[in-house]
Amino acid sequence: MYNFDVEKPGTVADAVAAMRTEDAQALGGGQTLIPTLKQRLASPSTLVSLKGVAEMQGITRDGDSLRIGGATTHATVAADGNYAALSALASHIGDPAVRNRGTIGGSLANNDPAACYPAAALASGATIVTTSREIAADDYFQGMFDTALEEGEIITAVNFPIPQAANYQKFVQPASRFALVGVFVAKYADGVRVAVTGASNEGVFRWTEAEAALSANFAASALEGLSVSADNMIADLHGSATYRAHLVKVMTGRAVAAAS
């Protein structure tokens, strides 16, 4: 690692101020960022640790809406249970020690194309709350490792509308345990949303044909006849584009069958 300073603000306001330092970078749980720094792939001047920002911690429910602070760990989300499918997803990110450090804000800010949270946020139509604005999930994810976040902008919370039924199915990449293909299906009064992670060179995406079919008939059988194009799917040593496209359909069907 190149050296850097560590700032530990206690408030969002202090965090925003600290992020004004040239080449400052926000540090959530560090479970991706620290390994990246070890490889000397980044050289921030300052890491702004968000762990101590009390306003960014914890989960609150307001009717059918769940607000999760940006610095809330995966372990906390996993233990929560207000949004069962989301808790189940969080309980399978990384491993227990990683879940005790990694945060939802960090995961969404990084937008790894194989991360789990982006699928939940997109399928749930979540709102990403930042230090300067609120961003709809549909506008937030802009491709692999790319988001709508501006320089210095920090995710302070994520608001999830709690669906009638939902489920996340992850087919793991066996080495990293990230998603080779992960599909989050969420059924709301106004329709079904399906978001896919792990599969596409464009990062997380909505499978709109499946959404239409499932909105009409929320059953795995509704997917019969649909297929996912392998164009622009990721191909690597763990699976071809065709295989990933196939898995998207399989995992979607399983998520629908398991949704509760």
């Binding site: 066996p174 080495a175 990293s176 690597d236 040593l237 763990h238």
Partner: peptide, 10 residues
């Protein structure tokens, strides 16, 4: 290509 535990499956 499989130069870490992210890609080499232990």
């Amino acid at each position: 290509l499989s130069a870490s535990y992210m890609d080499y499956t232990m």
